[in-house]
Design a protein around this nucleic acid. Structure first.
Length: 836
RNA sequence: GGGCGGAUAGCUCAGCAGGUUAGAGCAUCGGCUUUACAAGCCGGGGGUCACAGGUUCGAACCCUGUUCCGCCUACCA
């Protein structure tokens, strides 16, 4: 580092090799030391661009390059906006409360929940939370993610607890939240209730058993079920009203086998005549359909499964067995009685808990619900006001909302989460809310701020011991960022709510559309009547090289540190840039290697300019428009401006990948392979006529390359910053390239005729390269004569106007028009010949 | 069952308001090292654009149908 300081003004010694490991460390520190990415709270002029950064959840052990991919993709846009002059509000959140963290800690420490106290467990969670945060920070820093860490939050910290609890109280007052005793989704493994969004449908192998029941008239009835263990919970038999076979059962009851219990026969159009025998056993409660029929038809209640997923006393002889064991035992018993009339293997869809993949059950418990079913229309409408990138992701949201079946249960029978700000009167059960200015509160550790129950006068209060669903907090992130929970207290902070909310951008992964995105819309509509953000960008997945989604459990896992160390963070980001938004992206090390090649090429192209600059060089002595430009200069600038325009359009529509591709194409094909190749020769021909040409070329190179690395800056923040600080900054004002302005497209710098002219030159150049190859001539061998023949008279004056550049590019001492030229170029009117 | 995305060179992907001979990178083959870059440069070979129809003067691109891959969603107990 010291060395580069010494050589700061000695461009001739600009390092030959790009030492990315040292540079990236140095630059990351430079950003930190200079608060490069700080949001300016006091700037009220600049328009704000605020991003609702996804809080990654604690177990950083699962991190892979796919995570860096999605964060980078969001960041390309954020960095672009920063360069476009926005005051960028880009916080980092850490999602570390709730079930995911608990599951992680349980697994890591092999915890038996009955042998550990709530406090000990929470301590372990807090400890892992801290470790997770540090690991993440280190990774994001090394990956160049430009967040403002002063704006960090953790979903278990005071601000988030306060915000979540205030949300609860606000919704309670708005009557959008209520406590109900009804069947809920339950995970027997995690011993907690769940919401619909926590359930995923999995295709599992099962067996469809044909079991014989008896009608009250003594007739055998075959009923197909995959859940014989629920026989004891059977409360009705259903048939389709149009099914002639079972009309006779009307008014009869049916006796269940083993239990010999009489259950009524009912009819419902939803029963599929063609499934099994057309008869359906309805239980308390095997699935959502059972719950619906139970509710609508006021069926009996026969609960036989407990919270641990075991059968209870009501199941008789099977009490104490797990659902799985009970199924086996009951099937055995039925077989002994010859009541199993058939069994066939069946692939069926089972709802399982997304965190542990345990099939969920229905049980009845008092739970808190946020009402969402009543307002589906509002949530659909809100999503319509948000701009979706890419727009084909929106139907997933609509589909989810349209299919919602349950209100949002936010009660979780767990430890590590935000507590409900609620007590109950021990006498009458009246709900006692915490006072808003006391939030956050832990009702288990504090008393309510009243002496007696306002309803019954009771003086004892019991705290709510459940914690809130982790999404209860995550759904608040825009309002956490905006300090919504504090707005009634501090006037200046309230301004922040007005300034950054709704947020400009929500970047996120596709699999949490139904959770993070949906719940955030719900909360925002309910709390503020406004959408939470104006744009949402949905990233695809990082896949392994075989096209499978990366995951720890599959072991097809590539760690970002490894790739950063080997190829650099910029190179990893290059890989991340290859997929446009919403597209999955395979990880091949080749792509990172290609990224590194590009960086090295950038380095060397810059080095050519830097090492050729003489003392006193001033790129701003004259604006490029005032220089007497040659055709080739005009051409490279025109091509650059055209590309710049394209890049800007792409970035505006979040198509960062196409933007980068366009500029990389320009960089390779136009700038390096042709412009530098054409003009570089003048730098070592010490002929006086070249001096002026050199100066102009340096100015052109400065203009083009500086603007070009600005376009690259969002993608490759490290190398562009290094080039900027070690060279360009000597002539510029901004303290960082990332705080410099995205270049404006300048129409007056496009010279369309130069493209035609240089096309002729390039055709000659290409042909001469081919000729050299076939003649075994070195590309650098200076030939004596380049003979040119053209069938188009208009070309003659054009060729004369770029005579010098043609000679230089083709490494020829002279260019002569001659009919001897017989090697056809790509242009039918143009022939050349080489004389050594 | 419904919906979305994808199928283009050996591999990974661009191209799709329809328009000369379909592109890039990697891989491969041939050539080139004193002068930005061998982690490089120059040049070459390589494709019936998943399949079948249709619209059109003209289709990788538009329409219809089919097959395969991935995802979202769905009560067949």
């Amino acid at each position: 580092m010291q060395k580069s300081e010494e050589n700061f003004n000695n461009f001739k010694d600009f390092p030959k090799n790009y030492d990315y490991q040292a540079v990236e460390k140095k630059i990351a520190q430079y950003w930190e030391d200079n608060d490069t990415y700080s949001f300016d709270f006091f700037d009220t002029e600049k328009e704000i661009f605020s991003a609702d950064t996804p809080p990654p959840y604690v177990s950083s052990a699962h991190l892979h390059v796919g995570h860096v991919m999605s964060y980078s993709q969001a960041e390309f846009i954020v960095r672009y906006k920063r360069m476009k002059g926005f005051n960028v509000f880009y916080p980092m959140g850490f999602d570390d409360n709730g079930l995911p963290t608990e599951r992680y800690v349980e697994k890591k420490y092999k915890i038996n929940k009955s042998k550990i106290t709530r406090e000990e467990f929470i301590d372990l969670c807090l400890k892992e939370t801290k470790i997770g945060i540090e690991t993440y920070k280190a990774l994001w820093k090394s990956a160049g993610i430009s967040v403002d860490y002063r704006l960090s939050y953790s979903t278990i910290d005071e601000r988030c607890r306060k915000t979540s609890q205030k949300s609860f109280i606000d919704l309670y007052h708005k009557k959008l939240i209520e406590r109900r005793n009804e069947p809920i989704l339950w995970c027997p493994q995690c011993r907690t209730s769940l919401a619909q969004a926590d359930i995923i449908i999995e295709e599992l192998n099962g067996i469809l058993y044909d079991i014989e029941f008896k009608s009250s008239s003594g007739q055998g009835l075959i009923i197909s079920t995959t859940r014989p263990e629920l026989l004891g919970a059977c409360v009705a038999i259903y048939a389709n009203p149009l099914d002639d076979r079972y009309r006779f059962l009307n008014g009869q009851s049916v006796k269940t086998p083993l239990y010999n219990k009489d259950v009524p026969v009912k009819y419902d159009e939803t029963v599929d005549i063609n499934y099994g025998t057309g008869l359906m056993m309805v239980c308390t409660w095997g699935d959502a359909e059972d719950v619906r029929k139970w509710k609508e038809n006021k069926l009996d209640t026969a609960i036989i499964i407990d919270k641990a997923g075991r059968l209870n006393e009501a199941s008789g002889a099977y009490s104490g067995l797990t659902v799985r064991d009970a199924k086996r035992a009951i099937v055995d018993d039925l077989k002994k009685l010859s009541l199993i009339k058939g069994e066939k293997p069946l692939l069926h869809n089972v709802g399982v808990h997304d965190r542990c993949e345990t099939p969920v059950e229905f049980i009845r418990e008092l739970q808190w619900f946020i009402k969402i079913l009543d307002n589906k229309d509002k949530f659909l409408e809100a999503a319509g006001e948000i701009k979706w990138h890419p727009d084909f992701m929106k139907p997933r949201y609509d589909e989810w909302v349209n299919n919602l079946k349950w209100d949002w249960n936010i009660s979780r029978q767990r430890f590590y989460g935000v507590p409900f700000p609620v007590w109950y009167c021990a006498n009458c059960g009246e709900v006692i809310l915490a006072k808003e200015d006391e939030l956050p509160v832990d009702p288990a550790a504090a008393e309510p701020d009243i002496i007696k129950c306002p309803k019954c006068g009771g003086k004892e209060f019991k705290p709510e011991t459940d914690v809130m669903d982790t999404w209860m907090t995550s759904s608040m992130t825009p309002l956490i960022n905006a300090l919504w929970a504090y707005d009634s207290r501090a006037a200046d902070k309230k301004k922040l709510l007005d300034r950054i909310y709704p947020m400009s951008l929500r970047p996120q992964a596709q699999e949490i559309i139904r959770t993070w995105l949906f719940y955030t819309v719900v909360k925002s509509i309910y709390h503020t009547g406004n959408i939470p953000f104006k744009n949402v960008m949905i990233s695809g997945w990082g896949l392994d090289k075989n096209g499978k989604k990366m995951s720890k459990s599959l072991g097809n896992f590539v760690g970002p540190e490894e790739i950063i160390n080997k190829y650099s963070a910029d190179a990893l980001r290059y890989w991340a840039s290859k997929a446009n938004l919403g597209q999955d992206l395979r990880f091949n090390e080749e792509d990172a290697a290609n990224g590194r090649r590009l960086l090295i090429k950038l380095w060397n192209a810059a080095r050519f300019l830097i090492t050729n600059v003489n003392e006193g060089f001033n790129p701003y002595e004259k604006d490029v428009s005032e220089l007497e430009l040659g055709e080739v200069d005009k051409w490279v600038i025109t091509e650059f401006e055209n590309t710049l325009k394209i890049c800007g359009n792409y970035m505006e529509s979040y198509e960062y990948s196409s933007s980068l591709k366009a500029m990389v194409d320009f960089f390779y094909n136009v700038y390096c392979d042709n412009y530098l190749e054409i003009i570089k020769n003048v730098f070592w021909d010490e002929e006086e006529e070249n001096f002026d040409r050199k100066d102009k070329a340096l100015n052109v190179m400065y203009f083009v390359s500086f603007n070009m690395i600005k376009i690259f800056a969002p993608f490759f923040p490290f190398i562009t910053e290094e080039l900027y600080l070690s060279f360009y900054k000597n002539f510029e004002k901004a303290g960082s390239i990332h705080l410099s302005n995205w270049p404006d497209y300048r129409k007056e710098l496009t010279f369309e005729s130069s493209i035609k002219t240089v096309k002729i030159l390039l055709n000659i150049l290409e042909a001469s390269r081919k000729l050299r190859t076939s003649l075994n001539l070195h590309q650098n061998h200076k030939i004596d004569k380049l003979l040119v023949k053209t069938l188009n008279n208009d070309y003659i004056s054009i060729l004369n106007s770029v005579n010098g550049d043609i000679k230089s590019a083709a490494r020829a001492k002279r260019m002569i028009f001659s009919d001897e030229a017989d090697f056809k170029t790509a242009d039918d009117n143009l022939f050349i010949k080489i004389e050594k």
